[in-house]
């Protein structure tokens, strides 16, 4: 049975999710931060993690965004193939939701309309929209506002098959080391391995929306995540880059088939304000 969904319902949901994501960190992220605070040994790092927890509390209680960089709105739509949208244009509806969320929610407008001319669009549109068609008649919406302090320190590598797993590990650790204090650690490290140039980047971005610390279902990838988290935390970059154990809260790796000649690798860094809010219509 085809299910009819008004794009206005979609816009409303996007609006609310933008506001929610920027004021309330999801429980998985809050728990990961609390765990890190419990394991920190350096006094300065503990003090900073304490400030981050206090910051989350103030944000939630007083409706102040967790971070002033309320990000560019990355929106994932998983659209059931038995859904029919009516009442207007889908992309326009998503942008309308972002526009309203960022205006009504007192969120920062951080988007310029042309990357070279750099005029602020004034309403944080357009969104970055990723749609996929899945079985069923539901629509899953995930809004992940992405700050650019950490986005700017993200990297893509077109490795060679001969570089192998070792090459992948080196590149990931190197990316985190180069980011140092700039990406607002403790980080969540989203990694995409395989596919094509753009597929690897999208895998890495999606990896950031995974429940923080939930391991990959693939045993060899799960082992890789654990090893990398340990190596990254051994860098001792620490909270705010001022030293300490908590350089990363989690490493999430997503993989996909690739070409015989290639080993694409994307490392999408996210700060401790790893925002994502979801809803199913």
């Amino acid at each position: 049975m085809i299910r009819e969904i008004s794009v206005k319902t979609l816009a409303e949901a996007v609006c609310e999710l933008c506001i929610q994501a920027n004021h309330f960190l999801s429980p998985d992220m809050r728990n990961a931060l609390a765990r890190a605070a419990g394991q920190e040994t350096s006094p300065l790092a503990s003090r900073i993690l304490g400030q981050l927890e206090e910051n989350l509390q103030i944000a939630a209680e007083e409706s102040i965004p967790i971070c002033q960089d309320t990000g560019m709105a990355v929106v994932f739509l998983k659209i059931g193939q038995d859904v029919h949208f009516f009442d207007g244009d889908l992309t326009e509806a998503v942008n309308d939701g972002v526009r309203r969320g960022y205006t009504e929610g007192f969120l920062r407008k951080s988007v310029v309309g042309d990357p070279l001319l750099r005029q602020n669009t004034g309403d944080n549109t357009p969104a970055i929209l990723h749609c996929s068609i899945v079985p069923g008649n539901q629509v899953e919406i995930t809004v992940a506002p992405k700050g650019f302090g950490s986005e700017n320190m993200s990297r893509i590598f077109m490795l060679k098959p001969a570089d192998g797993t070792e090459g992948v590990k080196e590149a990931i650790v190197q990316t985190v080391a180069e980011a140092g204090p700039n990406a607002c650690p403790p980080l969540v490290v989203g990694v995409g391995i395989g596919g094509t140039f753009e597929k690897a980047a999208l895998l890495a971005k999606e990896a950031l929306t995974r429940e923080t610390g939930a391991p990959s279902e693939l045993p060899h990838v799960c082992a890789l995540e654990a090893e990398l988290l340990e190596r990254i935390n051994a860098l001792q970059i620490g909270p705010a880059g001022l030293g300490g154990n908590a350089t990363a809260l989690a490493v999430h790796i997503n993989t996909y088939a690739t070409h015989i000649a290639g080993l694409p690798l994307a490392v999408n860094l996210c700060c401790h304000v790893n925002r994502h809010a979801s809803r199913v219509l």
């Binding site: 910051n55 944000a59 965004p65 967790i66 700060c271």
Partner: peptide
């Protein structure tokens, strides 16, 4: 601010006797 500075900035800071402070990134509400 937050994050590293270039050698040129550090040289100019020494020349002019100035200081660079970091505030904690991502603690904007606090």
């Amino acid at each position: 601010g937050k994050g590293r500075r270039s050698p040129e900035v550090i040289a100019a800071m020494r020349r002019n006797q100035a200081v660079y402070f970091a505030a904690v990134g991502g603690a904007g509400a606090l």
